[in-house]
Design a protein around this nucleic acid. Sequence first.
DNA 1: CGTCTTTGACCGGCGC
DNA 2: GCGCCGGTCAAAGACG
Length: 573
Amino acid sequence: METKKPERHCHDHVHDEEESQEGEDAPAMEHGALSLHRGATLFGQRHHEEAAAGRRGEIREVDFFSRDSGARQQDDGGGGRRVTGGGRDDLNIGLDLLTTATAATASAGEEVTAAKNHKMEASAVEAELRRVVDENRRLRGMLEELTRSYGTLYQQLLQVTQHHPHQHQHPDLMNNRSSLPHTHLNTMGAPNTSTRQLLEARASSTAQTQPDAGVEDEASDGAGEASPSLSNNAGNNDSDGKRKLSQDGTAPSRENGEQASSAELPGRKARVSVRARSEAPMISDGCQWRKYGQKMAKGNPCPRAYYRCTMAVACPVRKQVQRCAEDKTILVTTYEGHHNHPLPPAATTMANTTSAAASMLLSGPATSRDGAAALLGHPAALFHHHASIPYASTMATLSASAPFPTITLDLTQAPGSGGGVGGLLGHGLQRPPVGMIHPAVAPAMPFPVPSPLAMFLPQRAPPTAAAAPAGLVARQQQQQSVMETVTAAIATDPNFTTALAAAISSVMAGAGGAHHQAQPTPRGSNTTGIAGEADGSAAGAAPAAPTTTAAGAHAASGGSPRLATQSCTTSTT
DNA sequence: CGTCTTTGACCGGCGC
DNA sequence: GCGCCGGTCAAAGACG
């Protein structure tokens, strides 16, 4: 695709930079930003670790001295490291000399005292960090536990309230064909599990009205569990099977017509539409997609592209991507179905969000509307389902006219203004949340994006924030949002260490650094591309947002673990 | 050479 | 019954 080239290109570019950095630190000026930022991250910096122990002390001192103006000082520190890269120990020498010189001219005693104080401060901070790390770890565990428990309990509740003992046996027709039943869904993790359970429960309830459908579902279900065969219905064999199923599914729904009753329609397939500003042809959601068609849709000059998830052979998930006719900067992505395979962390959030939204749509007959209302009026409700649903703070609307129950999550507006979870976004963003936007677009939005949506970016990236320079921006506000973002990131990110590093880095940098650009998105062949994109975006961002934000991006891409790229090549979106 | 994208053709539903 | 439309398929071409 169009993005493909840029992505790969970016990736290569970054790679080159990495090589140069790793190989020879000397040539640096050109790659200064990148190396600097990477060096800025609190943890996981290769150079830091390499050079390690011996110099660490000095570096810290330098950092602390410059503490007041974090960004500049970090730059200085980075620069120093870089310069010294060629001769690893030069830095120390230089510092010593400087110190010595200073001492000679000034009062050495004061310097020493100051140094001691700083060291003490440093150790204190480290201790504090350790404590926070443990605390976060513990809290995260609790959160996961709660999420699991909630999902389980909610399912049980549904079972009881709906008096339906066979919840797992009757996914609705549409779900049946486009999404795999519990078996596959389980791979998505606790939150998804709960969502799935909800959907299944709903489906089962609806199935009651159509015994035949239920039987078919059961059969296919069994197949699905045994193998991807079920998905095959929706996937490879979709030409026939799909169409038949879709027909079966859509027919009844249309008979009933009203969207309000969608929940009662077994054949209905919930769709989740995400609106986001993006110049890229596709947003990064962490999954790997393959385009299988493109069509001109009536009423919109922009073509609609059809994508199929290719992270698993028979994954039934599809998505449509189309630009908004009114505002072509807005990219509308519509998801349909459930993944039948494990998702990379980067994709989990989106999956959870869409699943949650879908579950809202499909939740109980009586609750379908309520669910929608809850979503509309109380976005926070989503958080009950999934702690990692940044969309909760965005606008959500239901489409009554759509053939399928569709919920639209509008990320084009500042969550802060309309969000129910306003806290997540302390300050209204002038620009759209970049969180889930494809990294390639990031450069267009050089500013730090403390938005909760940032979580859509591979959280490994969060660490990125670390480098953010800082202090030049309205710090208090940003700090708050950063902390919130970081908190969310930690809760979401499977790689806690990385998230923690990012969080700490962000805090340390004192910047709104929460520019979670680094998108890990893995994406099969695209993966690379995406991963590359992420890196590329970071690289690209550099020029746009010179040292500061870009720095964060770089750091993220470089310092964060390459899980994303390895895991599944997620991204895009 | 394998993979992915492009794009015209095909299919089925729906409205008139 | 016909045409429109959305959605999908699959051959051909592009790309690495």
